[in-house]
Design a protein around this nucleic acid. Sequence first.
DNA 1: CGATTGAACTTTACATGGCAAAGTCTAGCA
DNA 2: TGCTAGACTTTGCCATGTAAAGTTCAATCG
Lengths: 130, 130
Amino acid sequence: MAKNKNLPDSPGRYAYDGLDRVIHEKARLGILTSLAGHPQGLVFNDLKDLCSLTDGNLSRHLQILCEASLVEVWKSYGNNRPQTLVRLTPAGRQRFLDYVHVLESVVTDALAMTPASNDKPRLLPGLTPQ
Amino acid sequence: MAKNKNLPDSPGRYAYDGLDRVIHEKARLGILTSLAGHPQGLVFNDLKDLCSLTDGNLSRHLQILCEASLVEVWKSYGNNRPQTLVRLTPAGRQRFLDYVHVLESVVTDALAMTPASNDKPRLLPGLTPQ
DNA sequence: CGATTGAACTTTACATGGCAAAGTCTAGCA
DNA sequence: TGCTAGACTTTGCCATGTAAAGTTCAATCG
């Protein structure tokens, strides 16, 4: 949990390289989180509702997630209608978890200094004020 | 902590409306997190290094954060060079905190179902499998 | 003392990418 | 055999992130 990330102010300390662009997008983050909680997969319309997305929107993002091999899409015919089932791939689940861990560190960073800002007389770290 | 967010699968459950676009961008998230930990503010170059950004990049994002009233920018002349000091505004700090709380719930959601996926016999929530 | 370098930003231009509106395709129904 | 409805896909526009080029000013060099 404590890599070199708790060092005071090293260069790149807040670069958050691990924030995978493909995952970090709001809509896709919602999609992946939904899927993470539904290992059996979700059909297109349920996913659409859970994430409050439009058809076109969801379609596009699924395409992107698919190309990145984060999810897999299964087509079939449930009660005489096309049904699209979406699931996380194992690799996708792993990449998502990695991403979430970075997210955790962002939250930790953010909450570490902030809430005590009114009572703690803070000393300036490495900055030379002149 | 438990709004209606722990309800099984209500529509919009994973929409994450609170993920403010202005804040959610990777680079700006880094900038804001840096600033959250440095209430006295940071100068342009330190911020640049902490976030591993290029000059132009940082400049652009600061502009955006400024227009959104999340940060304030002070110009001056420290040792015969222009110095730009950047700080979170009080409102900015609040909005950032709000955002971080949403982020926390994303992490919670993501980790809630996922890590036990090998030993916990999971029961399907609200989905009707047919 | 005019030219040049270097620091510290700003501006511009391009290219990616998100989003919504329009389009496709199949099945049932009148 | 049109027509409507559902389930997506495709297209096109516009916002936005990024890198490269530009600007400004102080100090230094010839």
